[in-house]
Simulated scan of single mutants.
Amino acid sequence: MYLKRILLTVVLLGLLIGGLFSAMVYRTLFISNTVFSNDEAYVFISSDADFDEVKEQLQPLLKDLSTFETAARRKRYSENVKGGKYAITKGMNNNDIVNALRSGNIPVRVSFNNQETPALLAGRISSQVEADSLTLFQAFSDKDFLKAQGWTPDQALLPYIPNSYEFYWNTSATTFRDRMLA
């Protein structure tokens, strides 16, 4: 009789501890954690960002940053931050937010019209992607690149046909240049 009572107590304590643990995991991963009023918010994470910078950007969008941090560490996102433009939808839970930041890089529409010089083109493009205008200008007017194409510096704007294109926000200057060439 005494052994049954101890066994029953141990089982009940185990169920209680398991229930508390399950509730904590559920709260951390699956309860809505957004606080903004719009339907969607966008986060721009630079290519060289670390997890602290991601947390800083997400701070105004989340109800509880600590549960997001816990979920991100458990899912190993904190060591694998990737740059790009990401959408956070109203009502998302921490699990969905981490999944979006892992694999939801959204392309941006890059548009330009008749820019007269590589410097003006670089300025226009830099307002739409992560690469800065100086890096873009250097990629556009790279003498080795121009020579490999058989162009002179005056022909540096040849591959840039005015239109709208889709690129990832974190596209580098040389990637942008090379893709416009194709």
Rank of each mutant, 00 (worst) to 15 (best):
T117F: 12
S103M: 10
K63A: 15
N94D: 07
P159W: 07
N80W: 09
N80I: 09
S164A: 13
S127I: 01
V108H: 10
V129W: 06
A72K: 09
N114L: 05
P60N: 05
D144N: 11
T89R: 12
I45Y: 01
M92R: 01
N163L: 12
K55N: 04
T67V: 15
R74F: 07
L62E: 00
D96K: 11
E130K: 02
E130T: 00
L62D: 02
F176Y: 13
L121H: 09
F44L: 11
I31R: 09
S37K: 14
R27V: 12
N163R: 14
G104W: 01
A41E: 14
F30K: 13
T171R: 08
V35W: 02
R177E: 05
G19N: 03
F140D: 05
A87G: 08
D48H: 11
A122F: 02
K82R: 14
T89Q: 15
E69H: 12
S22R: 15
L101Q: 02
S126V: 08
I6H: 10
L3P: 04
Q138G: 04
D142A: 10
D154V: 05
G123Y: 03
Q57P: 02
F68R: 03
A100D: 01
L134W: 02
N163V: 01
A23Q: 12
T70W: 15
N170F: 00
F167V: 00
L61V: 08
N99I: 11
A173L: 11
P153A: 06
I97T: 06
K143I: 14
L8P: 04
K90L: 11
E116G: 10
K85Q: 15
L62A: 03
L158H: 04
T9F: 12
G18D: 08
A139Y: 10
W169D: 06
S164T: 15
F145Y: 15
D132P: 02
M92P: 00
K4W: 12
E56P: 00
T34Y: 06
Q138A: 12
N105R: 14
V11C: 10
E166S: 06
V54K: 03
L8G: 14
Q155W: 00
F51T: 08
L181F: 09
